[in-house]
Each structure stands twice: as C-alpha cells, then as structure tokens.
Amino acid sequence: MKTREISKRKCIGCGEMKPKKELIRIVKNKEGEVSIDKVGKKPGRGAYVCNSLECLEKGMKSRRVERSFKMKIEQEIYDKLKEEIVNE
C-alpha cells in the first residue's frame, strides 16, 4: 500500500515547513475581509501561521501578512487574530 503524503505549508512567521493541520490559516475573501479559517475550507487567498503569538508577531513585523494578501492590514485585524490565537 502507498502511504499518503502529508501536505505541508510554510509559516509566515518562522518560515518553517510544517504539516497543514498544525498551522492556522488566515484567509482574505473577495471583499477584502481578513479572518481566521478554523476549518481550512473558506474560499479566498490563504496564508498559514503557527499556533503561537511569536510567529504572528514576526509575520506582522516583517509585513509578510500584508505581502501575501497584497493589501494594507489594519491594527484592529491583527488584534483580533492575536485574540483568536490566544483563545485556542
């Protein structure tokens, strides 16, 4: 039997390749709204970050989140993302 390959994604904070299930997906929909996709099925452009505040803050500081979505992201959206990561 063939073993199924685990899909990996790169964290925008630390830059490490990790299994998709270990990362949190941040998604931008067609209207330009940015939110966390807990299921991983929402339509739109996605970026992945580890389940830690350190990685999110690194991604914010280096503007990797903004580059991956090609738009300016307001501080209140970052605050909401931080809050959702802390609650998980």
Results as ranks from 00 to 15, higher is better:
Cys14Asp: 09
Lys30Ala: 10
Gly15Tyr: 09
Ile24Thr: 06
Asn87Met: 13
Glu16Ile: 13
Asp37Ile: 13
Cys14Phe: 06
Asp37Gly: 14
Val65Phe: 14
Glu57Pro: 01
Lys58Met: 10
Gln75Cys: 01
Lys10Ala: 15
Ser7Trp: 00
Glu76Asn: 15
Lys30Ser: 07
Val49Cys: 14
Tyr78Glu: 14
Val27Glu: 08
Gly44Gln: 03
Lys61Met: 13
Arg4Ser: 11
Gln75Ala: 12
Cys55Val: 05
Glu74Trp: 09
Asn51Gln: 04
Ser52Phe: 09
Gly44Met: 02
Asn29Ala: 07
Ser52Asn: 14
Arg45Cys: 01
Gly40Asn: 11
Arg45Glu: 00
Lys21Met: 06
Lys18Met: 10
Met60Thr: 12
Leu81Pro: 01
Thr3Lys: 07
Val34Ile: 14
Val34Gln: 02
Glu57Ser: 10
Ile24Tyr: 02
Gln75Phe: 00
Ile12Tyr: 05
Cys55Glu: 03
Cys50Trp: 05
Tyr78Pro: 07
Cys50Val: 02
Gly44Pro: 04
Leu53Val: 13
Ser7Asp: 12
Ser35Asn: 07
Pro19Gln: 08
Glu83Thr: 13
Glu76His: 12
Gly46Val: 06
Ile77Ser: 03
Cys55Gly: 05
Lys20His: 09
Val86Ser: 08
Ile24Cys: 02
Glu31Arg: 15
Glu22Leu: 03
Arg4Val: 08
Met60Tyr: 10
Glu76Pro: 01
Gly59Met: 05
Glu5Val: 10
Glu5Tyr: 04
Lys18Tyr: 08
Val49Ile: 15
Gly15Leu: 12
Arg9Asn: 12
Gly59Phe: 03
Glu5Trp: 09
Gly32Tyr: 00
Ser35Trp: 05
Asn51Met: 04
Leu56Ala: 11
Lys8Val: 15
Ser62Phe: 08
Asn51Leu: 00
Lys18Gly: 04
Tyr48Val: 11
Leu23Pro: 00
